[in-house]
Design a protein around this nucleic acid. Sequence first.
DNA 1: TGCGTTACGCACCTGTTGGTAAGTATGAAC
DNA 2: GTTCATACTTACCAACAGGTGCGTAACGCA
Lengths: 135, 135
Amino acid sequence: MNNAAGDSPEWSELDPKISALVREIIARIADKWTLLIIEALHEYPDARFNQLQRMVEGISQKVLTQSLRQLESDGLIQRTAYAETPPRVEYKLTPLGESLGEAFCGVWIWAERHWEEIEASLAAFAAKKMLKEKS
Amino acid sequence: MNNAAGDSPEWSELDPKISALVREIIARIADKWTLLIIEALHEYPDARFNQLQRMVEGISQKVLTQSLRQLESDGLIQRTAYAETPPRVEYKLTPLGESLGEAFCGVWIWAERHWEEIEASLAAFAAKKMLKEKS
DNA sequence: TGCGTTACGCACCTGTTGGTAAGTATGAAC
DNA sequence: GTTCATACTTACCAACAGGTGCGTAACGCA
């Protein structure tokens, strides 16, 4: 009665088991690199490994591999390897991954819209801290 | 012409300086604890320190303090200390923080709606891996 | 006088994350 | 037969995140 389909869109109290699950999922996808990879794949579908590494600036090969495996096992991206030489592997978002990308789109827009406020706040906070330490 | 106000809602190419800034902001807010704190404060405004620690299950005192400081310096929460005994400190989301909470709401809903698919995908992936290792 | 409460700060230590660098498999080209 | 490219995997190591425990300030109460 409580765990199966209830597709209620309201954000009400849901039972703690599911809540914990959701938290775990959030914790798994909410890291810097994962988000950037999803965004890169959202903009450039069917990207290859080295392309991704170039797009997600600063990521190391190892972390990219790890993140891609994680995303794959979560069902967010699809990995397609072609038995050619040199080998070719293409990654693309699954429909599930696409839907997550769209959900995150709001956050990207938020960041784009509010970065100036954040910068200002950071500066103000640093100034206040300096003042406090002086005294 | 390019960096100031252009409030274009389209998701077009924006100049790399801002893009990097946005990435940095995303990297700063996109971690497990920060998100959970924002959600807790979204649901229970004016929460106190120990209340938050109880709500965000599993967080340590140190990390909660650190995260709150970070959120405060980013201008996402407001800290109000009352000079009483025992001391009382209340935290609430600023309008900026509220807007971020709303932007993230989509992700929460997404997670709530799709956790079953993710679980299924994880299980399938593990099974496939087992199969591979057996051979 | 000593205990309790709240909201921390600080020091220490460990576990995980992440970077670097090297090795591997494949087949085609030279 | 050596080289080259791709897409990894593995080993090693450093850095940092995070947990634990102790200290603190302020006052109220017994």
